Simulated scan of single mutants.
Amino acid sequence: MAKICGVSTPEAVSAALDGGAAFLGFMFFPKSPRNVSPEAAARLTPPARARGAKVVAVVVDPSDTELDAIVAGLSPDLIQLHGKESPARVREIAGRTGCGIIKVTPVSEPSDVAAARAYEPLVEHLMFETKPPKDADRPGGLGVPFDWTLLEGARFARPWFLAGGLDPWNVGEAIAASGAPLVDVSSGVERGPGLKDPTLIRAFLDAVRRA
């Protein structure tokens, strides 16, 4: 199954749903070219809810005020935490929002994968993403893969996501190398920063199905 992240137009939503995406991600982070308001995201979600796709709010070290606004405006099924949230903060957010949690772990070496175990009892899904360079102004959506074999043979209590640098041409290889049950894509299906390409979305989802 796949998540198309950073959608912001009806065309992208339609392409994702027609291709069989199980999750749609909406970005709430001002530094991202995919940033939307809760109200704008909410206008895009009725087709997803009608077809059973999960609506995911993607945030980075959110404040309680930001979380309250997103929950009130969007009513997401899941909240994806893409910052440096501690296990204690993840527990707080889950309790405050009543939403399932996806916790992102940035990866560059085996110890990073092991560190995700601390979050495992608290979340619906873990997500493994490329660790950004120290000078990056955002934690993901940079279009760079990591060594997928670091996850080979990994077992977790719930299905986990592979993310980071995936696209229609490499996602089959990534699934084979990592054993990922779920995959996430954002920049790999864009024709420019934040500009989702429906043709690339469909190609990505076709490749996931084949894999």
Rank of each mutant, 00 (worst) to 15 (best):
M1H: 12
K3D: 11
I4N: 07
G6D: 03
P10T: 10
P10R: 15
L24H: 15
F29V: 00
K31V: 06
R34Y: 04
S37G: 14
A42C: 10
T45S: 04
P46C: 03
A53D: 12
K54A: 13
V58I: 01
V58M: 00
D64Y: 02
E66P: 00
L67G: 00
D68A: 13
A69N: 06
V71I: 11
A72M: 12
L74W: 03
I79Y: 00
Q80L: 01
L81I: 01
S86Q: 10
V90C: 04
I93G: 01
R96S: 03
T97V: 12
T97I: 14
G98C: 07
V104N: 02
V104G: 12
P106D: 02
P106R: 15
S108R: 15
T130R: 12
T130L: 02
T130W: 08
K131D: 01
K134L: 14
K134R: 15
R138N: 12
G143L: 06
P145S: 14
L151P: 02
G153P: 01
A163G: 12
A163E: 04
L166R: 06
W169F: 11
N170E: 15
V171Y: 13
E173R: 11
E173N: 07
A174T: 13
I175D: 04
G179R: 08
P181N: 14
V183T: 12
V185C: 10
S186M: 03
S187Y: 04
G194E: 08
